[in-house]
């Protein structure tokens, strides 16, 4: 089983970003997407998450799937605490007690339990991104989208976050689509790598990472 997109079309005004584009993502694997700026990587993730409407396209294996998303910026609600931000996405899914447990468990994995009551304004950039990672994993998603999640984070911290991500991923092995500019990161975190060109986006190369 995999999650497949066929004959995707999407234009912004006169700019064709996707033209009869096809791609498949294997389930329970980390698939990385590399490609030049402006080729449509973010647009592809937004189409999958449902915040951008495609002009046309067939999606198989997407119906009813839950999506979590880690962006380049943490995108935390400034008026909610760390635990409040995690619970925000869990509220429609779990009853109160389970929700708290779930939030606590993932705050623990990213090492932020002591900061549960802090507001994002009181955290460093790296801590905020950790909250976003905890939120994405705490949410019981079938597909996890990541759009250059470590781009604005310095080298040292980035390595530890990538390690944390790999540990978290190993625990439940959900389907991940990771967009990155960093070949090292793609090779280290991914099982498969797609290299795109464009726009309009086209698959230039597919690399299977062997360990």
């Amino acid at each position: 089983m995999s999650f497949i997109i066929r004959r995707l079309n999407k234009s912004f005004d006169s700019l064709e970003v996707f033209k009869e584009f096809n791609i498949a993502f294997p389930e329970n694997r980390v698939t990385c997407i590399l490609g030049p700026s402006g080729c449509g990587k973010t647009t592809l993730l937004n189409i999958i998450s449902g915040t951008v409407k495609p002009d046309s396209g067939e999606f198989s294996g997407l119906a009813g799937k839950r999506i979590s998303y880690i962006y380049q910026e943490p995108r935390l609600l400034p008026w909610k605490t760390v635990i409040g931000n995690i619970e925000f996405v869990l509220k429609d899914v779990y009853p109160k007690r389970e929700r708290k447990e779930q939030a606590n468990r993932f705050m623990e994995t990213v090492g932020l339990v002591e900061f549960a009551g802090f507001y994002p304004g009181q955290l460093s950039g790296g801590m905020k991104q950790r909250v976003a990672i905890a939120r994405a994993f705490a949410y019981p998603s079938d597909i996890l989208l990541m759009d250059e999640p470590f781009k604005s984070i310095d080298m040292e911290l980035r390595e530890s976050l990538v390690r944390e991500f790999k540990n978290l991923w190993a625990a439940d092995q959900r389907t991940v689509i990771l967009v990155t500019h960093d070949r090292e990161e793609a090779l280290s975190a991914g099982h498969e790598i797609y290299i795109l060109t464009g726009p309009p986006a086209a698959l230039a190369e597919r690399v299977i990472v062997t360990e």
Partner: peptide, 23 residues
């Protein structure tokens, strides 16, 4: 961007209004 985040996580509209827009 916050609204898009909430929509990606399928947060229901009344809660998006109450917990994202209003604050």
């Amino acid at each position: 961007e916050l609204v898009d985040m909430a929509r990606s996580y399928r947060v229901k509209l009344p809660r998006i209004i109450l917990e994202v827009y209003i604050p």
